[in-house]
Design a protein around this nucleic acid. Structure first.
Lengths: 364, 364
DNA sequence: CTGAAAGCGCTTACAG
DNA sequence: CTGAAAGCGCTTACAG
């Protein structure tokens, strides 16, 4: 009696009658759980092997004898067996979930990045939990806590930059974190992106080379990446001996409508401004619309440049000069880096620079 | 010996020394699991109650004596205890995960809907898994399978419309499904949205009332919702005794650039066309850009109307006449409906009509 | 109001 | 190449 295995004691189980070992023979309906799904034990019974053998068949079929493998495979398809993730997670303490924190989804920027993440992580069997922080560090902290309870295997984040407290919670949880979009200067911190500062510098240089005398900087949201672009703008102007303070900054959320508004402000506060560097394409598009509304010629009276190269920017009239950013690649490579870390093969460089491209078009 | 509880047999556990029952007294470091996280057993030990009492304290504190509750609460905060979702899922066969299938994230339409879903489901303790089907029914089938293995408590879907096979897999899994965006005509099927057909009809009627003689329909992607709008367009033209066949349809993915291209096609194929109904705002914006490029006056020579009222549409020059859709509300209400179903309190009506609004502006 | 026991479905050493 | 046992961390009846 004391040798009776736990499994049998836990629950009566109907077995296929011992006689029909061949898969072709019809057998009694296999017992299912409440969930309605077949379990690994059902497969094992039907295939006449132990649950472990089924487990092995699933993760490394080569380990089995051809016969056993064939029987397990047949049982799996016959029962429509799908592994239960919760059970696997509990047993392995690997959730195969990655938490992704992005500051916004309202333009295509981070959506492209998510696509890259999905394309890398999906085939590797990972699910992603997407948290939209709305550029708020309170929301960030909240999401980190929530996701931590799901025990993700890793985090992919944009814009944790602000809060030291959040960084510490993440460190305490000993979960690997890859930062996206900017290049980290903190040693030992993984990052995939490009130099926001250099991108801002490059675009501004371009404007100066085109002969604009008084470029201005227009920005909203004012997240750290935007501020880096601004730093690049200022550096270029200073190097050229020009006034770096022609700027309109607001922490309102970025939008096309806001771009219209900010263009108007720039025009009235700095009438000499002959070119504006908008910290993103949405703002630039709004600025362009406002110029059209007022009959102001672009780039004749004022040049307009954006940032990111969103899809509409190539089609507006005039088309928008901008900086093309490797958004999809950032997601894909950040995910790939995380996978390498999780597999115990971290690369040497902790900081992957994916670069940006200046894309001159008609507006500047 | 045989009475030794399983837990003790499984793993040696260090208890706080029996003497110091008060929470203020320092105690030995509590044992943690490999995962590094405290477990319910750790909390139980520290609070000197059973694990079940902790479990109760977490879900219904009122059930406990004030003393026990206080000790559990103190232990929870001291250990930073966070419940393990995988264990809870396994024990309850409720995953607290909802799978959401959307056809695209590349404009703000479904992003708004996701926000609504999050805002409803997040506070209720649910996580969402977001699947982007890319308007492909193959991808749909794939995502349904993948997500089914995560045993979501429910599905929120847009555009399963196509495949009967997918509908059946979902039905077989006995998981509740709420359809979003159109109103289902299939009895017993939950849906939250508005009548796409009526919306198409209403916008077309408006164009006719404004005196346009030869409206045309421009559409891409050709998903079922787009085709419903087209049906509304055709009905309105037929009722007016006009030719409903002025149309350019393509199954290419929708984009601003494509809008420019399709406007050009319409102009050359149907020179008499004096108003176009674009099946979404991206297409309409592209069409507008193309008119600007060609120096064609809008709405003078040709009127342009869009669909959805995306944020830029209010700001273009001219601003875009369109149909405003309750995208956020659709997500929120669909999620709320799902929650009601999961709680065993389904509403009587299976079909929730959230309506649309005609938004006339400058372009038509 | 509180607890002992068994179970959820899987995997990890450890044997053989 | 294959299996018995124990464990992952929680909850659900069932008792008292």
């Amino acid at each position: 009696m004391k040798d009776k295995p736990t499994r049998a004691a836990r629950q009566p189980r109907t077995h296929p009658s011992p006689g029909n070992a061949t898969t072709a023979t019809p057998h009694e309906p296999t017992r299912r759980r409440l969930s309605g799904r077949a379990t690994i034990a059902d497969v094992a019974d039907l295939a006449q092997v132990s649950t472990m053998t089924v487990s092995r068949a699933l993760k490394d079929p080569a380990q089995l004898s051809p016969e056993a493998r064939a029987r397990v495979e047949a049982a799996v398809t016959e029962l429509g067996y799908v592994p239960n993730h919760a059970a696997r997670t509990l047993a392995t303490s690997r959730s195969h979930v990655v938490a992704v924190l992005v500051p916004s989804l309202s333009n295509t920027v981070f959506v492209d990045t998510l696509a890259g993440i999905q394309d890398c992580l999906g085939p590797a069997g990972y699910q992603i939990l997407i948290g939209n922080t709305g550029y708020s560090s309170g929301k960030q902290a909240e999401l980190v806590s929530t996701y931590l309870s799901h025990a993700p295997d890793g985090f992919l984040v944009t814009g944790i930059d602000g809060s030291e407290a959040i960084r510490q919670r993440l460190a305490a949880a000993r979960v690997p974190v890859v930062h996206m979009y900017d290049l980290s200067r903190t040693p030992g911190e993984w990052s995939v992106g490009f130099s926001q500062q250099r991108a801002g510098f490059t675009l501004t240089k371009y404007l100066l080379e085109r002969g604009y005398q008084c470029p201005g900087f227009v920005a909203a949201q004012l997240d750290p990446r935007t501020m880096q672009r601004r730093a690049g703008f200022r550096r270029a102007l200073r190097e050229a001996g020009l006034d770096p303070d022609v700027e309109i900054l607001t922490d309102e959320p970025s939008s096309v409508g806001l771009g219209s508004k900010l263009l108007a402000q720039m025009l009235s506060h700095a009438p000499a401004c002959d070119a504006i560097f908008c910290c993103n394409d949405d703002l630039a598009l709004g600025a362009l619309f406002e110029c059209q509304r007022r009959g102001i010629s672009v780039p004749g009276r004022i040049a307009i440049a954006g940032f990111n190269d969103l899809p509409p920017s190539a089609w507006s009239t005039p088309s928008l000069t901008t900086v093309t950013t490797p958004r999809y690649q950032i997601g894909f490579e950040a995910a790939r880096l995380l996978l390498q870390i999780l597999d115990g093969h971290p690369p040497e460089r902790s900081c992957i620079d994916l670069r940006f491209t200046l894309t001159p078009r008609e507006s500047a």
